[in-house]
Design a protein around this nucleic acid. Structure first.
Lengths: 189, 189
DNA sequence: CTAGGTTGCCTAAACGTTTTAGGCAAACCC
DNA sequence: GGGTTTGCCTAAAACGTTTAGGCAACCTAG
């Protein structure tokens, strides 16, 4: 019986693609097995269970996003960096909706601490270097930026903006303008 | 055989409570039947299928949030209204995490248009009445507010802020300060 | 108050997903 | 080439979803 050459990495990769195709919540061990032309039980040698598979996909997505963000931030500062960083979120979510949804999976604290999520936080802080915020305000600004990016992208992806007329592209540009303005004129505590 | 008195409304209500208890994605027709001390098949006379049940819970949650928001906005304006409106989101999500997650369910366009989601959009616009934004900028501001509130709440709920030190309460207050400041000094297009 | 129709919950059964246990053969390692 | 490891298999149990069909409880009209 020919071997299919399954590995945890390959399953994770295929799972990520599957998520983009049919949605993260419909990624199933069975479906993945079907794609590999293999019996379901075979996957359980490589992946502990369904939850494990999902977590792996989530971690991979976080890595990918962090890599993109790092690349985008290189050699940029101020509004330029802000816009590039923001675009990473949005573009990633549009190109890979399933992976983006995966990245939102709630991880247990230790997994989260070891994940690329912390790289994200560091990079958000790096964006703020281009603005003149007191140290004590930086946490709040980091959280605000995270909220806006995540919130915007997830509403746009979920169709929350789809009805009314104006292009979301325009709103996105205006959102970045607004954030830039806000960071330059951050209200005193 | 005594009747349990099931109705779609009662199932929806119980489903919402179940969601808050165990998480929206773990709400299942079987579990609901168990709670009512009834066989699974019995529920299918009241609810088309699992998806239908979820949708009903989502719509109910949207109604509840819209009601709360309407109540919060009555007699308030400016930053006062902004803060009250924002708190509705946050408080609802903290009190009813399962329902809040349900409210994020992607609805098909016609269901969305008929839902209380549109009331939300109208109320967000009402908040802006306290600020002096040109008509053409209002859509963008509405979307920005929606993004921040949803993004913040969903990150906080997902534990995204839990690690680092400062109280999220403080960040929340600073976020509202920042939004108020931003709306008062909205950058010219 | 009873006969007829309607409704509500039931049993039964098919199907899909998850997960564990144990087996056989391919691959690898000297 | 022989022994070990590894990878995929079959089998099977447990659970959620969903449909079909039945019987008894409830409601309504005479």
């Amino acid at each position: 019986m020919a071997r299919a050459g399954l590995t945890a990495e390959r399953l994770t990769q295929a799972g990520a693609e599957l998520a983009d195709e049919i949605g993260f919540d419909r990624v199933t061990v069975s479906e993945l097995a079907r794609r590999f032309g293999v019996k379901v039980a075979s996957l359980y040698s490589h992946v502990r269970n369904s939850q494990d598979l999902r977590t792996r996909i989530a971690l991979a997505a976080l890595e990918e996003m962090a890599d993109r963000a790092a690349e985008a931030l290189a050699g940029r500062a101020g509004k330029d960096a802000l816009a590039a960083f923001a675009d990473v979120y949005r573009d990633y979510a549009r190109e890979h909706p399933g992976r983006y949804a995966a990245a939102q999976l709630r991880l247990d604290p230790q997994a989260a601490a070891a994940s690329a999520g912390v790289r994200h936080a560091q990079m958000t802080r790096a964006v703020l270097r281009g603005y003149d915020l007191p140290e004590s305000e930086q946490v709040h600004a980091v959280r605000l930026l995270g909220s806006v990016f995540h919130g915007y992208v997830s509403l746009e992806l979920g169709g929350g903006f789809s009805h009314s007329a104006p292009d979301t592209q325009e709103t996105w540009a205006r959102t970045i303008d607004a954030l830039d303005s806000l960071l330059r004129n951050w209200p005193r505590p």
